[in-house]
Every structure is written in C-alpha cells, then in structure tokens.
Amino acid sequence: MSDYNFAYLDEQTKRMIRRAILKGLAIPGYQVPFASREMPMPYGWGTGGVQVSAAVLTPDDTFKVIDQGADDTTNAVSIRRFFQKTAGVAVTEETGEASVIQTRHRIPEAALREDQILVYQVPIPEPLRFLEPSEVETRKMHSLEEYGLMHVKLYEDISQHGAIATSYAYPVKVEGRYVMDPSPIPKFDNPKLEMAGIQLFGAGREQRIYAVPPWTRVVSLDFEDYPFEATKADHACDLCGAEDSYLDELIVDDAGGRMFMCSDTNYCATRRKAGHVGAQGVPYAEDAA
C-alpha cells in the first residue's frame, strides 16, 4: 500500500464528486458542475474520468481501463497502474470480470451487467458548444429545452455530405429531456447507451459530471427522412472474424495493404481463445507463442 490516500484523492474531494455523481444520476443527462482537482496527469488524458473512478472505487473492486477499446495502450496502462498503486485494487483486462471500467472513446462490445460501472473520459461535455459559444446561453437552452440548434448541426451534415456524417460524439436525448454528448464514442456504440450498467461521464478540464442510470432511454437525434444509423466498417474482423464488432483499420505495409480488427481488444482475444479465426488471423495459441 502506498502513502497516498485510497485512490489518490482525499475523502472530502471524493465526497464532493460523489454528490455530483448522485445528482447526475438523479437528473439523467444533466451536466453537474464539480470542483475538478489537479491530477498528476495533463488535461486531455482523462483527468475527469480518473476523478470519477477514484470517487466510486472501493477496495473490493476490480478495475479495467480501455483506450479506444484497447487495454494495452499507454494511456490505459498508465491509468490502470495509477489505481493499482494508489488504491491497491485488483485489475483486469476481462470486461466481464471488471466492476469498474474506465473508458476513452468506446463502449465494450460485451453487454455490461447491473453490477458494473462504466466511467467515460469526456473532453467537451457540452453538445451545443459547436454552434453556441456562450456557456450562459447553452445552459439556458438546456433549462428551457431549446434544442433546435442540435438539429442545425445534423442539417449541416446532410447538406454538405448527403448524409449525417457525424460519426462520433453523436448527440443523444436522455430520458426525453436532456440532450447529451456521449463523449467521442463512435456512433456505432450509441445503441449500447441503453444498458444495464451505470454510466458516469467525467470532464476534468470543463469541470462537469453527468450520468445515465441503468436502463435509461437514450435516443440518438435524427431526421424523419434521415434516420440514425449505427455504422461501422463493412467488414469482418481479420483476426477473429467477428461481424458485429466495431473495427479499427490498420495499414500494414507501404503497398496499401490493410487489415481490419476489433477495436475492443478483449472482445477479440476472447473470441480467438474460443477458436474463432478471421481472414488474416492465426489460431490464438500460436499467436501467444
């Protein structure tokens, strides 16, 4: 055990953050201001998510961190180690074994359960910011449910690209009330926002926390004649053959060779362990060797 207080933050700070989280859960989609602390990492690296994780972690939790779906990127590894060190909690890469999952820009492919918490890192929590620079005005728009502007953004998309080209941070309406930025997850993940787990969103630099309680209605905004579509690359994973997962495209040589693979590394690995093999993949055991 280190000399840090459990999970780095002092108890008063964690209480303050928990109050913000509870308020967020009580008013789904509403951005609750909180006194974001300086964290030992730069803004943009997940300071909001880390503070939320610190406030919800208990010594019995099992913690998982993903960055764009992967457990093994620098950011994910750093945050995982941070809580290993400051909270001494168990960590895992298995989605199903984790009780708290901190994520940047993805929702795991495997459906979450009611005993799991998903913590999002949020860069810009205000979905109206794109068109309305004034915070005073956007707050008023939220309080009065004046959301026409949100559709202006989608209108611009269609007029310029012939379709709603917004492919990530796709705005949603939560429980028929607040319009919310689901953080920069691909819109492929939007349907998963209606889930059994608790979803908490933390924006450190912007000092906002918001939440989606379990089984809350989350509707992606669209037009009647241009309905929302959860899109992904029209491919199967080249490693595990999955056709239902969100894919990353990888350029593999200078000749334009490419492959597609699951962005959710744990999902991919689990499938390969179970014997699934994609077009360019090799059986799991050989790979490990």
Partner: peptide
Amino acid sequence: RMNVSAGGNVGERLMAVNARHY
C-alpha cells in the same frame, strides 16, 4: 450564425419549433 450555411440559418427557426423532416 456565421458558421452555419444559409439553408441551416433559415432552417434553424423551423427546427426550433420541432420540424424534423430534412
């Protein structure tokens, strides 16, 4: 709105009163 197209500028008031057909 200077960063929104002419069509979006005209359409905003319609969308503000819940027009949802592009």
